[in-house]
């Protein structure tokens, strides 16, 4: 349990640290950290009982990062890309990509392709989550538009 809380703190600071060298506005740093934590918590919540479901876990993680980025962007009146970029950091398939390169360099091609598979699955999952969150935003705007029209 202790390591879980330590990890949550680490996730928060990884997003904030990324914001530091991406030159995020000062006011956005705290929310960027929260965005990362939210996305990672959903990912963790799915991956712990189902370790094989890396695609699904990253899809839901990406979706939550995208949605909370849109909400934070509205609260802070800043572009949503600020929070998406930083919230994404804890989900990036860094370990698998490294294992792919390492096995490829050492000549274990079947193991390397196995890891490449995982990298593609994770990256695709995150991207799909982002796309769905943007789709929901468009849907919401359309509904709001219709409501305004009806009110008139």
């Amino acid at each position: 349990m202790l390591i879980f809380w330590f990890k949550v703190i680490c996730v928060y600071f990884s997003s904030v640290g990324f914001g530091l060298f991406m030159n995020l506005p000062h006011k956005a740093l705290n929310f960027a950290g929260f965005d990362g934590v939210l996305g990672w918590l959903i990912y963790y919540w799915i991956i712990t009982p189902y370790p094989a479901a890396i695609g699904q876990a990253n899809f839901w993680g990406g979706l939550v990062v995208g949605l909370s980025a849109i909400i934070f962007a509205r609260i802070k009146r800043m572009p949503s890309i600020l929070f998406e970029v930083t919230g994404l950091v804890p989900l990036v398939p860094g370990g698998q990509a490294y294992n792919f390169i390492k096995n490829f360099a050492l000549g274990n091609y079947s193991a390397a392709l196995n890891y490449l598979d995982q990298v593609i699955l994770i990256a695709g999952g995150i991207a799909l989550g982002f796309i769905v969150s943007e789709l929901l935003l468009k849907f919401e705007q359309r509904i709001r538009h219709l409501m305004v029209k009806r009110a008139i």
Partner: peptide, 14 residues
């Protein structure tokens, strides 16, 4: 420092 923090924290997370 930010780059260092990103690396160090993600080692724990990943």
């Amino acid at each position: 420092l930010g780059a260092g923090i990103v690396g160090a924290t993600l080692v724990v997370v990943f």
